[in-house]
Every structure is written in C-alpha cells, then in structure tokens.
C-alpha cells in the first residue's frame, strides 16, 4: 500500500512535467497548426543557459527565472524569424503539408548540434531547487523528495496562471479567438500574428520550465530531452492535442501510468507502454480521452 501511494505521488510529480511539455506543444499547435518538434531543442538550449547563469550567480531562483525568460524569448524568435515567413512562402508549395514539420525538425537538429558545439556532448548535472533525498516518515525514507514537492507546486502554479490568462484576461480571449477562427478574429480586431507569437513565447517558457525541472534527475546533454519530447507529445495526444486542460490531464495520466509500470513491471517497459498508449489512443480515440466532439483532419 505504502509502495502504491509512493508510486502515485512520484508519478504525479513526473506527470506534471510531462503536462508542461504537453502544454507547450498544444499552445503552438492551436495557434499555428504546427507540432513543434524543436520544443525539445529549445528547452535544452534554455537549460544550458540556466546552467551558465547558475555557474555565475549560484542562485537557483535567478537560474530558473532567466531560463524561462530565455525560453520564452527564443520561442517568440522562432515564430518571428522562421515560422511566420515560412507560412507565407510555403502556402501551397509542392510539399506544403509536411514542410512545417520538417522545418521544426531541422531546427531541432540545428539547435542540438549548436548546443553540442558550445558545451560538448558529455552529461552534466543541473541544480535542483531543494533536496532530492526523500522525506522521512518515521524511520523509513520515502522516495518523495522536497524537490518533487517543488515540481508539483511550481507546475500547478503555472497551470493556474495559464488558466487565469486564458479564461479571464483580454489577451487570453484574443488567443482563444485566434486559435478558434483566425479569419473572424482578425475581422474582430485581434492582431492574429502578434497573438500567435505570444503563444509561441508562452510555449517556449513552459518548455524551458519543463526542461529545468526534469534535468536534475535525467542529467543534461544535447539530446537528453528527446524522451521528454516524446512523452510530452504522447500526453498532448492523450488530451486530444487541442485542449489545454486535456494536455494537463494527459500528462498526469501518463506520468502516473508510467510510474505504475516502472514499479510493478520494471523500467524496461516504460517506453513500450508509452508507445502502445500513443498508438492505441490515435487509433481508437483520435480526439483524445477527453477531447471535444469534432476533430480537425489537419
């Protein structure tokens, strides 16, 4: 019983990170109709920037905040310099349907290469906010640490902030309108392109936070976040790729599910499980577990 509860809490902590990554991918997908595979690269880059900040200042809060801000700025830049011009150009070219996906992939390759070029390929450790040793309950040490609590707390805070922005603020309304029906939103006075860029910035920030939170456990290397990308995508698909709430639920479900698999079947089944879940959801419920009625075939 004790083990089961521990697994659940641990899964929730991991799942919250997957949720963040899923949120990043969903934000971009909703606004631009592109699944941004470069998200892993952007997160790796901001995490390395965070590492440099920590080397200089030795301050964790500063590290985390600058990494997030850098991630957001970089996300906005990717949209401004790459995606926006591309959407204009490729419009109806010979490989219009696959071009955006291929470009984000090219960006992923370029960023990972660049990061390796600057910082080398060896694994590095990344600071955690709080101790990663588990809490003591009585005499036994449970595998749930203060840092896990910090992860849960931070991600929940971010999700609440997103919820507030999207449901209560004018900007959130504009973003929802631009995602729902760009043409009509434009007629109603929403500056769709600018709102999109803000969406990319939010996504970049969320991805950067996910990277900074998972890296103390996985260590940092140019391709260390590939698995996070896959799990984030799986979580986003679980939630239907359209809804932010769906992405959060998908992330927690995936995190807890994978933690249960690791505890009761062994860690070698993690990936197979995720892959089977991904395929099963796509084939059986393409609109996601809690998705809306209609599904776009884009």
């Amino acid at each position: 019983m004790q083990q089961f509860v521990n697994t659940l809490i641990n899964g929730a902590s991991l799942g919250s990170i997957y949720s963040l990554m899923a949120l990043a991918m969903i934000l971009v997908w909703r606004s631009t109709r592109v699944v941004n595979f470069a998200q892993a690269g952007q997160a790796v880059l901001s995490t390395y920037v965070g590492l440099e900040i920590h080397r200089i200042t030795h301050s964790y809060p500063l590290t985390l905040i600058i990494a997030i801000i850098f991630g957001a700025l970089f996300g906005a830049l990717v949209d401004l310099l790459l995606v926006r011009p591309l959407m204009h150009r490729v419009g109806d070219g010979p490989i219009a349907a696959v071009a955006p996906v291929i470009v984000t992939l090219g960006l992923l390759s370029a960023i990972q290469g660049f990061v390796g070029l600057i910082w080398g390929g060896e694994y590095r450790s990344f600071p955690a906010a709080l101790s990663q040793n588990g809490f003591k309950v009585g005499l036994t040490r449970i595998p749930f640490s203060p840092f896990d609590l910090f992860i849960l707390f931070t991600t929940l805070l971010v999700m609440l902030a997103f919820a507030y922005i999207f449901q209560r603020s004018g900007l959130g309304l504009a973003m929802r309108a631009a995602a729902f029906e760009p043409e009509v939103a434009r007629l109603a006075g929403v500056r769709v392109a600018r709102v999109r860029t803000i969406g990319w910035a939010f996504a970049g920030g969320a991805g950067a936070l996910a990277g900074a939170l998972i890296t103390p456990t996985t260590l940092l290397a140019p391709n260390s976040l590939d698995l996070l990308l896959v799990f984030g995508f799986t979580a986003a698909v679980l939630g239907g790729l359209e809804s932010l709430v769906g992405g959060v639920v998908g992330g927690f479900l995936l995190g807890i599910g994978l933690a249960l698999v690791v505890t009761y079947l062994g860690s070698s089944f993690t990936f197979i499980t995720a892959f089977v879940v991904l395929i099963a959801v796509l084939l059986l419920r393409p609109r996601g577990l809690i998705g809306q009625r209609s599904v776009r075939n884009a």
């Binding site: 960006l107 992923l108 390759s109 370029a110 990972q112 290469g113 660049f114 990061v115 070029l117 140019p222």
Partner: peptide, 8 residues
C-alpha cells in the same frame, strides 16, 4: 557537432 548544425 558541426554536421548536425549544417544538416539542420
């Protein structure tokens, strides 16, 4: 790492 950058 340069090949990866060039590829991208």
């Amino acid at each position: 790492n340069l090949p990866a950058v060039l590829t991208g």
